[in-house]
Protein backbone atom coordinates (compact mmCIF):
# COMPACT_ATOMS: atom_id res chain seq x y z
CA UNK A 1 0.00 0.00 0.00
CA UNK A 2 2.66 2.35 1.10
CA UNK A 3 5.05 1.41 -1.64
CA UNK A 4 2.36 1.67 -4.28
CA UNK A 5 1.44 5.09 -2.99
CA UNK A 6 5.02 6.17 -3.12
CA UNK A 7 5.27 4.82 -6.62
CA UNK A 8 2.12 6.73 -7.52
CA UNK A 9 3.60 9.93 -6.19
CA UNK A 10 6.83 9.30 -8.01
CA UNK A 11 4.98 8.62 -11.24
CA UNK A 12 2.94 11.75 -10.85
CA UNK A 13 6.02 13.74 -10.11
CA UNK A 14 7.80 12.32 -13.12
CA UNK A 15 4.77 13.02 -15.29
CA UNK A 16 4.47 16.48 -13.85
CA UNK A 17 8.07 17.19 -14.61
CA UNK A 18 7.55 15.91 -18.11
CA UNK A 19 4.50 18.11 -18.63
CA UNK A 20 6.35 21.06 -17.23
CA UNK A 21 9.20 20.36 -19.61
CA UNK A 22 6.80 20.24 -22.52
CA UNK A 23 5.18 23.49 -21.52
CA UNK A 24 8.55 25.11 -21.12
CA UNK A 25 9.54 23.96 -24.55
CA UNK A 26 6.34 25.44 -25.98
CA UNK A 27 7.18 28.91 -24.67
CA UNK A 28 8.74 30.52 -27.74
CA UNK A 29 10.97 32.87 -25.80
CA UNK A 30 12.59 30.11 -23.79
CA UNK A 31 12.98 27.88 -26.81
CA UNK A 32 14.92 30.68 -28.44
CA UNK A 33 16.96 31.11 -25.28
CA UNK A 34 17.86 27.44 -25.21
CA UNK A 35 18.79 27.39 -28.85
CA UNK A 36 20.91 30.47 -28.50
CA UNK A 37 22.78 29.21 -25.48
CA UNK A 38 23.39 26.00 -27.40
CA UNK A 39 24.66 28.00 -30.37
CA UNK A 40 26.86 30.03 -28.11
CA UNK A 41 28.37 26.91 -26.60
CA UNK A 42 28.89 25.47 -30.06
CA UNK A 43 30.47 28.58 -31.50
CA UNK A 44 32.75 28.98 -28.55
CA UNK A 45 33.57 32.20 -26.80
CA UNK A 46 35.44 35.07 -28.37
CA UNK A 47 39.09 35.13 -27.48
CA UNK A 48 41.16 38.22 -26.88
CA UNK A 49 42.46 39.20 -30.32
CA UNK A 50 46.20 38.98 -30.75
CA UNK A 51 48.35 41.65 -32.35
CA UNK A 52 51.09 40.77 -34.80
CA UNK A 53 54.48 40.93 -33.14
CA UNK A 54 55.76 43.53 -35.61
CA UNK A 55 52.80 45.78 -34.79
CA UNK A 56 53.35 45.34 -31.09
CA UNK A 57 56.98 46.44 -31.42
CA UNK A 58 56.08 49.53 -33.43
CA UNK A 59 53.29 50.75 -31.17
CA UNK A 60 53.62 52.62 -27.90
CA UNK A 61 52.36 50.83 -24.76
CA UNK A 62 49.63 53.39 -24.17
CA UNK A 63 48.22 56.07 -26.38
CA UNK A 64 45.30 58.46 -26.20
CA UNK A 65 44.43 61.11 -28.76
CA UNK A 66 43.15 63.51 -26.12
CA UNK A 67 42.44 66.39 -28.49
CA UNK A 68 39.55 64.73 -30.33
CA UNK A 69 36.36 66.64 -29.50
CA UNK A 70 33.45 64.60 -28.13
CA UNK A 71 29.83 64.89 -29.23
CA UNK A 72 27.28 62.86 -27.29
CA UNK A 73 24.75 61.15 -29.50
CA UNK A 74 21.10 62.10 -29.27
CA UNK A 75 18.39 59.54 -29.95
CA UNK A 76 19.91 57.11 -32.44
CA UNK A 77 22.22 59.59 -34.07
CA UNK A 78 25.61 58.07 -33.40
CA UNK A 79 26.48 58.32 -37.13
CA UNK A 80 26.30 62.11 -37.33
CA UNK A 81 27.96 62.40 -33.90
CA UNK A 82 30.89 60.16 -34.93
CA UNK A 83 31.36 62.10 -38.16
CA UNK A 84 31.29 65.44 -36.33
CA UNK A 85 34.06 64.20 -34.00
CA UNK A 86 36.47 63.12 -36.76
CA UNK A 87 35.68 66.09 -39.01
CA UNK A 88 36.12 68.59 -36.16
CA UNK A 89 39.41 66.91 -35.28
CA UNK A 90 40.47 67.64 -38.87
CA UNK A 91 39.57 71.29 -38.49
CA UNK A 92 36.29 71.03 -40.41
CA UNK A 93 33.83 73.30 -38.66
CA UNK A 94 30.60 71.32 -38.81
CA UNK A 95 28.01 70.60 -36.12
CA UNK A 96 26.02 67.44 -35.42
CA UNK A 97 22.86 69.39 -36.31
CA UNK A 98 24.21 70.14 -39.78
CA UNK A 99 25.19 66.51 -40.29
CA UNK A 100 21.91 64.92 -39.19
CA UNK A 101 19.87 65.85 -42.32
CA UNK A 102 22.86 64.86 -44.46
CA UNK A 103 23.42 61.32 -43.21
CA UNK A 104 20.58 60.17 -40.94
CA UNK A 105 17.82 57.91 -42.29
CA UNK A 106 14.73 58.78 -40.21
CA UNK A 107 12.70 55.62 -40.83
CA UNK A 108 15.73 53.37 -40.21
CA UNK A 109 16.67 55.39 -37.13
CA UNK A 110 20.27 55.13 -38.16
CA UNK A 111 22.89 55.88 -40.79
CA UNK A 112 24.22 53.47 -43.43
CA UNK A 113 27.91 53.08 -44.30
CA UNK A 114 27.83 54.38 -47.93
CA UNK A 115 26.21 57.59 -46.74
CA UNK A 116 28.76 57.99 -43.96
CA UNK A 117 31.44 58.04 -46.68
CA UNK A 118 29.40 60.34 -48.92
CA UNK A 119 28.92 62.87 -46.11
CA UNK A 120 32.67 63.00 -45.42
CA UNK A 121 33.17 63.81 -49.12
CA UNK A 122 30.68 66.65 -48.98
CA UNK A 123 32.77 68.24 -46.24
CA UNK A 124 35.93 68.19 -48.31
CA UNK A 125 37.66 65.26 -46.66
CA UNK A 126 38.45 61.93 -48.30
CA UNK A 127 36.92 58.88 -46.58
CA UNK A 128 39.27 55.90 -46.60
CA UNK A 129 37.92 52.52 -45.51
CA UNK A 130 40.98 50.79 -44.09
CA UNK A 131 41.55 47.07 -43.87
CA UNK A 132 39.71 45.84 -40.80
CA UNK A 133 41.90 44.32 -38.12
CA UNK A 134 43.25 45.37 -34.78
CA UNK A 135 46.77 45.89 -36.20
CA UNK A 136 45.69 48.44 -38.79
CA UNK A 137 43.28 50.12 -36.38
CA UNK A 138 45.92 50.68 -33.69
CA UNK A 139 48.50 51.71 -36.31
CA UNK A 140 46.19 54.46 -37.55
CA UNK A 141 45.50 55.70 -34.03
CA UNK A 142 49.24 55.71 -33.34
CA UNK A 143 49.65 57.82 -36.49
CA UNK A 144 47.32 60.36 -34.89
CA UNK A 145 44.11 59.46 -36.72
CA UNK A 146 40.83 58.94 -34.89
CA UNK A 147 39.04 56.03 -36.58
CA UNK A 148 35.28 55.65 -36.99
CA UNK A 149 34.36 52.03 -36.33
CA UNK A 150 31.08 50.23 -36.78
CA UNK A 151 30.05 47.77 -34.10
CA UNK A 152 27.11 45.49 -33.53
CA UNK A 153 26.81 45.79 -29.77
CA UNK A 154 24.24 43.00 -29.69
CA UNK A 155 24.03 39.56 -31.31
CA UNK A 156 23.56 39.09 -35.07
CA UNK A 157 19.93 38.02 -34.56
CA UNK A 158 18.96 41.28 -32.82
CA UNK A 159 21.51 43.75 -34.12
CA UNK A 160 22.29 46.97 -32.32
CA UNK A 161 24.43 48.76 -34.87
CA UNK A 162 26.59 51.52 -33.56
CA UNK A 163 29.27 53.94 -34.74
CA UNK A 164 32.02 54.95 -32.33
CA UNK A 165 35.33 56.76 -32.68
CA UNK A 166 38.44 54.85 -31.63
CA UNK A 167 40.90 57.30 -30.09
CA UNK A 168 43.34 55.29 -28.00
CA UNK A 169 44.53 52.00 -26.58
CA UNK A 170 46.43 50.41 -23.74
CA UNK A 171 48.36 47.35 -24.88
CA UNK A 172 49.27 46.12 -21.43
CA UNK A 173 45.69 46.21 -20.19
CA UNK A 174 44.42 45.04 -23.63
CA UNK A 175 41.96 47.91 -23.77
CA UNK A 176 40.52 50.22 -26.41
CA UNK A 177 39.51 53.80 -25.71
CA UNK A 178 36.55 55.14 -27.69
CA UNK A 179 34.27 58.14 -27.85
CA UNK A 180 31.04 56.16 -27.89
CA UNK A 181 27.38 57.04 -27.48
CA UNK A 182 27.00 59.33 -24.49
CA UNK A 183 30.39 58.41 -23.05
CA UNK A 184 33.66 60.18 -23.84
CA UNK A 185 36.84 58.09 -23.56
CA UNK A 186 34.96 54.88 -22.86
CA UNK A 187 37.25 51.97 -22.04
CA UNK A 188 36.46 48.59 -23.64
CA UNK A 189 38.52 45.43 -23.41
CA UNK A 190 40.10 44.33 -26.70
CA UNK A 191 38.07 41.14 -26.40
CA UNK A 192 34.66 42.75 -26.08
CA UNK A 193 35.53 45.47 -28.59
CA UNK A 194 36.72 42.98 -31.19
CA UNK A 195 33.69 40.71 -30.67
CA UNK A 196 31.31 43.60 -31.35
CA UNK A 197 33.48 45.07 -34.13
CA UNK A 198 33.86 41.73 -35.95
CA UNK A 199 30.09 41.67 -36.53
CA UNK A 200 30.43 44.62 -38.94
CA UNK A 201 33.28 42.76 -40.68
CA UNK A 202 35.52 45.20 -38.83
CA UNK A 203 34.47 48.30 -40.74
CA UNK A 204 36.86 51.18 -40.06
CA UNK A 205 36.98 54.64 -41.59
CA UNK A 206 39.76 57.25 -41.62
CA UNK A 207 39.05 60.74 -42.98
CA UNK A 208 41.88 62.89 -44.34
CA UNK A 209 42.30 66.04 -46.43
CA UNK A 210 43.49 65.53 -50.04
CA UNK A 211 47.26 65.10 -50.06
CA UNK A 212 47.36 62.76 -47.05
CA UNK A 213 46.94 58.99 -46.99
CA UNK A 214 46.25 56.65 -44.07
CA UNK A 215 49.32 54.70 -42.90
CA UNK A 216 47.79 51.33 -43.66
CA UNK A 217 45.82 52.00 -46.84
CA UNK A 218 46.36 49.70 -49.83
CA UNK A 219 46.83 50.91 -53.40
CA UNK A 220 43.44 49.84 -54.74
CA UNK A 221 41.50 51.19 -51.76
CA UNK A 222 43.35 54.51 -52.02
CA UNK A 223 42.58 54.82 -55.74
CA UNK A 224 38.93 53.95 -55.20
CA UNK A 225 38.55 56.48 -52.40
CA UNK A 226 40.26 59.26 -54.34
CA UNK A 227 38.31 58.57 -57.55
CA UNK A 228 35.00 58.80 -55.69
CA UNK A 229 36.11 62.03 -54.03
CA UNK A 230 37.23 63.56 -57.33
CA UNK A 231 33.88 62.69 -58.87
CA UNK A 232 32.21 64.99 -56.36
CA UNK A 233 34.83 67.65 -55.72
CA UNK A 234 36.42 68.00 -59.16
CA UNK A 235 39.92 67.65 -60.59
CA UNK A 236 41.63 70.70 -59.18
CA UNK A 237 41.26 69.91 -55.46
CA UNK A 238 42.12 66.27 -56.23
CA UNK A 239 45.56 67.05 -57.63
CA UNK A 240 47.35 66.91 -54.24
CA UNK A 241 45.55 63.63 -53.48
CA UNK A 242 46.76 61.98 -56.69
CA UNK A 243 50.27 63.40 -56.22
CA UNK A 244 50.41 61.94 -52.72
CA UNK A 245 49.10 58.64 -54.04
CA UNK A 246 51.81 58.21 -56.68
CA UNK A 247 54.43 59.23 -54.13
CA UNK A 248 53.23 56.44 -51.83
CA UNK A 249 52.70 53.94 -54.68
CA UNK A 250 55.22 54.97 -57.38
CA UNK A 251 54.56 51.75 -59.34
CA UNK A 252 50.82 52.35 -59.56
CA UNK A 253 49.87 52.62 -63.24
CA UNK A 254 46.29 53.58 -62.37
CA UNK A 255 47.54 56.23 -59.94
CA UNK A 256 49.68 57.93 -62.59
CA UNK A 257 46.84 57.57 -65.09
CA UNK A 258 44.44 59.34 -62.71
CA UNK A 259 47.00 62.06 -62.01
CA UNK A 260 47.35 62.57 -65.77
CA UNK A 261 43.58 62.97 -66.12
CA UNK A 262 43.40 65.47 -63.27
CA UNK A 263 46.30 67.49 -64.71
CA UNK A 264 44.70 67.51 -68.15
CA UNK A 265 41.40 68.66 -66.65
CA UNK A 266 43.08 71.72 -65.13
CA UNK A 267 44.92 72.49 -68.38
CA UNK A 268 48.38 71.17 -67.45
CA UNK A 269 48.95 69.06 -70.58
CA UNK A 270 52.71 68.86 -70.21
CA UNK A 271 52.20 67.45 -66.71
CA UNK A 272 49.49 65.13 -68.01
CA UNK A 273 51.82 63.72 -70.70
CA UNK A 274 54.47 63.10 -68.07
CA UNK A 275 51.98 61.26 -65.83
CA UNK A 276 50.52 59.15 -68.66
CA UNK A 277 54.04 58.19 -69.71
CA UNK A 278 54.77 57.03 -66.17
CA UNK A 279 51.48 55.09 -66.23
CA UNK A 280 52.27 53.13 -69.39
CA UNK A 281 55.88 52.63 -68.30
CA UNK A 282 54.51 50.91 -65.19
CA UNK A 283 51.93 48.91 -67.14
CA UNK A 284 52.54 48.71 -70.90
CA UNK A 285 49.18 46.95 -71.25
CA UNK A 286 47.18 49.90 -69.93
CA UNK A 287 45.37 50.71 -73.18
CA UNK A 288 43.49 53.63 -71.63
CA UNK A 289 46.85 55.14 -70.66
CA UNK A 290 48.25 54.89 -74.20
CA UNK A 291 45.05 56.30 -75.69
CA UNK A 292 44.91 59.28 -73.30
CA UNK A 293 48.61 59.92 -73.90
CA UNK A 294 47.95 59.98 -77.64
CA UNK A 295 44.94 62.27 -77.28
CA UNK A 296 46.88 64.81 -75.21
CA UNK A 297 49.79 64.71 -77.69
CA UNK A 298 47.25 65.31 -80.46
CA UNK A 299 45.82 68.30 -78.59
CA UNK A 300 49.39 69.62 -78.33
CA UNK A 301 49.81 69.25 -82.10
CA UNK A 302 52.46 66.54 -81.70
CA UNK A 303 50.90 64.25 -84.27
CA UNK A 304 53.87 61.93 -84.63
CA UNK A 305 53.96 61.05 -80.92
CA UNK A 306 50.16 60.97 -80.84
CA UNK A 307 50.12 58.34 -83.58
CA UNK A 308 52.73 56.19 -81.83
CA UNK A 309 50.80 56.18 -78.55
CA UNK A 310 47.42 55.56 -80.18
CA UNK A 311 48.90 52.70 -82.18
CA UNK A 312 49.96 51.04 -78.91
CA UNK A 313 46.38 51.40 -77.62
CA UNK A 314 44.91 50.07 -80.87
CA UNK A 315 47.18 47.01 -80.69
CA UNK A 316 45.78 46.02 -77.28
CA UNK A 317 42.58 43.97 -77.36
CA UNK A 318 39.88 45.09 -74.96
CA UNK A 319 37.39 47.79 -74.12
CA UNK A 320 39.32 50.70 -75.68
CA UNK A 321 40.52 49.09 -78.91
CA UNK A 322 37.75 50.42 -81.18
CA UNK A 323 38.06 53.87 -79.71
CA UNK A 324 41.82 53.84 -80.27
CA UNK A 325 41.36 52.79 -83.90
CA UNK A 326 38.89 55.63 -84.44
CA UNK A 327 41.29 58.08 -82.82
CA UNK A 328 44.05 56.91 -85.17
CA UNK A 329 41.75 57.39 -88.15
CA UNK A 330 40.75 60.89 -87.14
CA UNK A 331 44.44 61.69 -86.75
CA UNK A 332 45.29 60.70 -90.33
CA UNK A 333 42.46 62.78 -91.79
Amino acid sequence: MLTSRIRYVENARAEGVLVWHKQLWRMPGLRVTGLCLLLLLMSGCAATPQLAETTQQRLPERLLLDDIPFHGQRDYQCGPAALAMVLNAQGVDVSVDTLIPQVFLPSREGSVQPEMLATVRRHGRIPFVIEGNLDTLLTEIAAGQPVVVMQNLSLPAWPLWHYAVAIGFDLEASEMILHSGMEPQRVESFRRFDATWARSHRWALVTLPPGKLPETIGEDAAIEATTAWERLQGAKPSLPAWTALVERFPDSAMGHFALGNARHAVGDDAGAIHAFERAVANDPNLAAGWLNLGLVYQAQGENHQARQAMQRAADLPGRWQTQAEQALESLSQ
Binding site: Y76, G79, R108, G110, V112, Q113, W161, H162, Y163
Partner: peptide
Protein backbone atom coordinates in the same frame (compact mmCIF):
# COMPACT_ATOMS: atom_id res chain seq x y z
CA UNK B 1 22.46 47.49 -45.00
CA UNK B 2 23.22 47.86 -41.31
CA UNK B 3 22.18 51.27 -40.03
CA UNK B 4 24.21 52.52 -37.09
CA UNK B 5 22.00 52.93 -33.98
CA UNK B 6 19.00 50.70 -34.54
CA UNK B 7 17.01 49.48 -31.55
CA UNK B 8 16.97 45.99 -30.15
Amino acid sequence: LPAGASVV
